[in-house]
Design a protein around this nucleic acid. Structure first.
Lengths: 257, 257
DNA sequence: AGTTATAAGTTATATGACAACTTAAATAAT
DNA sequence: ATTATTTAAGTTGTCATATAACTTATAACT
């Protein structure tokens, strides 16, 4: 990705566009639509495989693969000898943000807005619940971040890990999972914007971020949830503001069209 | 679900336990493990279908269905003529909390802790960005909630919708999606606990909740993000406290052993 | 060396068959 | 007539074989 990153992304998009929708894709959408429309509700029985074969005009292989896909998505359940059913827990769809959904700066900003809320309370919980091992791990990541010779990728990695350690220190598995989820989606755009805006990697920037991190850590060490909340919110607000400023800058310099 | 709810849940659990793992299940786990172990990384090529047939000793149908399942989960991509690959975006796994994962009061409490953070900032954004239509919708849900003759299910539904409208008023699609996600998972346990603790549906409880809701709405109408943040956080904190108190009560009255 | 055609390899789809399970219908026992 | 058992029908799970569609490697031609 580092070499010819833009070209690789471009080629990949092209490849996706050239892929013709398969029969399994179409069968999936047909079944999915019948569920989303309410015609088939959680627990209700769907047509049999044989009936789908007739209705869709495809082989049983295609129907079975479509069912496998929908079962994996939690929408459908196949019961041997009985038939196909809309899953009782079809409503429990996962929360997903695909890479394609985070393609604009406005998407990144939305994501940062969400992350601000999560990080704020998470830090407060970490202040209440952290262990000494948690604190040591946080310190270690900040030490790595403070090294003068660190490269951008290692810097991003240590930053992400610092936040992941805080999440784990909250002793709430959902925070830990959600922060990891958000982190995965924010790393590529962040690295991209940091590369584009060289000023972001200057010494002044690093010093500001370092202070913010230290303030969070300090509050967590002192077991002060309110201070941790304020420090974390401040840190995330700064990040959000920078992206909003970037958005404003870009929209005021956009080509006329 | 209303009639014999407990029995239906019990029967369903039993049915799940009796289902024998299929060959597709096993094939899935084999492939998934090879990815998670790092032996196969994003972008790397996996063994061909034919090779999996040999290695796993199953038919090609089983391999293909396993692949369909893993593809639906975003882990694997099949490219016709080329082979099977670990998806470039395998790391972008969805955030999922299955119904089975929210089975204890402690799970509900963790979920409420997460929800507290999300609702707090969401209300602030809604105060900044809400439209008149948003406000009308919020009012409507509070009106429904205030009706004397409302049943428990309609009450829960209106409460959920009130929060969903706030989420949409934040004009951040990720907040809207996440609140919906959290709401789906909190409705069943909430209804259950409300049913068990009759005191929760008393007039005093309703009055307190109503005041909290009105405070949030008022701040949003006045376009006061700070007040909205405080009101929403206060509202969610109360809910969280009640559940923590319930947990404390239950753990101090738990059977010995 | 470059271009084109052919062969080999891989996934997408189709078809037919049997295995394993569930339910309905028929038959036997009381 | 009712109940219990057996059989048949229906449905998903798996296997095997074949062809279509696509990709890559190899061979043949210019």
């Amino acid at each position: 990705m580092r070499q010819g990153g833009t070209d690789a992304v471009h080629d990949e998009r092209l490849a996706l566009r050239k892929r013709r929708p398969s029969l399994v894709d179409a069968a999936c959408e047909h079944i999915r639509a019948s569920i989303l429309s309410g015609a088939n509700w959680p627990g209700s029985q769907l047509p049999t495989e044989a009936e789908f074969v007739d209705v869709l005009g495809v082989s049983r292989t295609v129907v079975r693969e479509a069912v496998a896909r929908l079962a994996a998505a939690g929408l459908v359940e196949a019961r041997q000898g009985k038939g196909l059913f809309v899953s009782e827990t079809a409503r429990y769809q996962a929360f997903q943000i695909t890479r394609e959904e985070v393609e604009n700066l406005s998407d990144v900003i939305q994501l940062l807005e969400l992350r601000l809320s999560v990080e704020t309370e998470m830090a407060a919980l970490a202040a209440e619940r952290r262990s000494e091992v948690d604190v040591m791990s946080m310190r270690q990541q900040l030490k790595i971040l403070g090294e003068a010779a660190i490269g951008l990728d290692d810097s991003v990695k240590a930053d992400v890990e610092f936040h992941n350690v805080i999440a784990r220190a909250s002793k709430n598995t959902y925070y830990a999972k959600l922060i990891d989820f958000l982190g995965v989606r924010l790393v590529p755009p962040r690295s991209l914007y940091l590369r584009q805006g060289q000023s972001y990697v200057g010494a002044r920037y690093k010093a500001v971020i370092s202070e913010e991190h230290e303030a969070i850590l300090d509050a967590i060490i002192r077991r002060d949830p309110d201070a941790a909340r304020v420090a974390a919110r401040s840190h995330m607000s700064s990040s959000l503001k920078r992206h909003r400023d970037l958005q404003d800058f870009m929209s005021s310099h956009s080509p006329t069209g």
